[in-house]
Design a protein around this nucleic acid. Structure first.
Lengths: 246, 246
DNA sequence: CGGAGGGTTGAGATTCATCAACGCGTGTGG
DNA sequence: CCACACGCGTTGATGAATCTCAACCCTCCG
């Protein structure tokens, strides 16, 4: 099973970064590839974690639910992303559900190899640490967003991230998930999401279907902040709005 | 500087758990103890992280702010807790502020020793991983709370955690921070916090000053969920409300 | 004594969720 | 080939929940 070649199809999973061939082989040898239909529940709150899921194709979400039926999306995953790595080190049952958003293929990496390797390969444990801290940073931004940002600002910041992720240069980029999903991820209803998008037009940001178009490269700078600016290739250019603020 | 004896005053920092004497010594040798007055800002959003802060006495908070002056509390720390460990592995500037809530003493552990040790001592990197995943789990609950929980439920869950933390047996326990702080941490105003406390009285939970009193040991079970139940000593007793739900 | 900070209470304003209806594109079955 | 249902997104009207603002009480402390 040579899956490594597969990784060329998308960003190389951070889990395998700088990892010795040896360790990569050990992981892949005991992992299995599995295909799931749309909306299939892979993990439920309260389950004991058994696998790390590496998305090969399709998309998943992780989320929490309460008895009244409310859902809070924690993350939305695309090919190359992993989930449940963090949960394994929390101890105890999973605090989250994992579900496919579309038909998906995922690589199931057993808990045992993860927990073994973490003590035997420091590069692997550092990779895990980097992954989890990245998730945690995201979570911080989510908390921040829901406490002190308006729906408009939440969307703006989300778009800014996607813009930076997708290379920063093009004035057009894609919404990687259904609007409903994004809305819930941002902690609002589809209705307010839609209404906020309308407001955004007057700021030079238009959305048609899943295509986001900017009037100019600085349209989203309004939504930037000090720690996100560092990710921006234009951070040090003199027309960076964030820099102007100082 | 023999600080290890200090650790008897509070829970042993998870950072040092199962760590060799050797490694502990290496850390302590290059760390310094520092005293700060109340409301002193130790780290600002955008700063590059220089230290891990281990709280020896007093209390700190980590939080984000926006230009309109809004604050979103991420964590509140007591003696034995650490912060900035996660930030160091995020890469880039700090997304959070760190500030003392009261006069405090903290141990400053330089970034360099952390980043060195993480590659040289797997126990240390696993400790970090456990710490960060615990933070992340908390963050998930915060996200969940603000999306799909009422103020009442948020407070109830917070109280439940404190109750479990403080040993689960006594019907009285303490609110470890000022109400204002807790309110902001839970994403609400002091006013709604106060009003929700009044509602809680009819559920058998009364608060006077910082003393929380329960009518009976099950008063908070309403606010439990599947992953938190596992922490509860009474989880498997037949009168556990959560268990009854199934 | 007087001021400051924390907490509570009340009244009013605002914002977002809810509910309902509609448009549009797609797929399906008669 | 048409009719219909369904999922997704949008729009409008309504209502409820929480924030805001203001006043007040209390305790602590100079």
């Amino acid at each position: 099973m040579n899956l490594l070649s597969e990784f060329n199809h998308f960003k190389k999973p951070q889990l395998f970064e700088k990892l010795s061939e040896e360790s990569q082989k050990r992981i892949l040898e005991c992992s299995v590839l599995k295909k799931y239909e749309k909306n299939r529940l892979l993990v439920q709150q309260g389950d004991t974690p058994k696998f790390v899921y590496l998305v090969m194709s399709g998309s998943l979400k992780t989320f929490r639910i309460n008895d009244e039926g409310g859902e809070a999306t924690i993350r939305m995953l695309e090919p190359g992303d992993t989930c449940m790595e963090a949960v394994m080190f929390m101890g105890g049952p999973s605090p989250i559900n994992v579900q496919t958003l579309t038909e998906s293929e995922t690589l199931l990496i057993p808990e045992r190899i993860i927990k073994t390797l973490v003590f035997e390969d420091t590069q692997f444990s550092v990779n895990l640490l980097r992954i989890v801290t990245r998730h945690y940073k995201n979570a911080m931004h989510q908390i921040d967003a829901m406490n002190i940002k308006s729906p408009l600002q939440r969307i703006g910041y989300y778009f800014l991230l996607k813009h930076i992720e997708q290379g920063n240069e093009s004035l057009e980029f894609k919404l990687p998930f259904k609007k409903q999903m994004v809305a819930n991820y941002l902690g609002m209803t589809p209705e307010t999401f839609s209404r906020s998008l309308k407001q955004m037009r007057s700021m030079g940001v238009t959305v048609e279907e899943d295509k986001i178009s900017l009037k100019d490269a600085r349209s989203l700078c309004l939504f930037c902040d000090s720690d996100t600016a560092a990710l921006c290739a234009d951070h040090n250019k003199e027309d960076c709005q964030f820099c102007l603020l100082h």
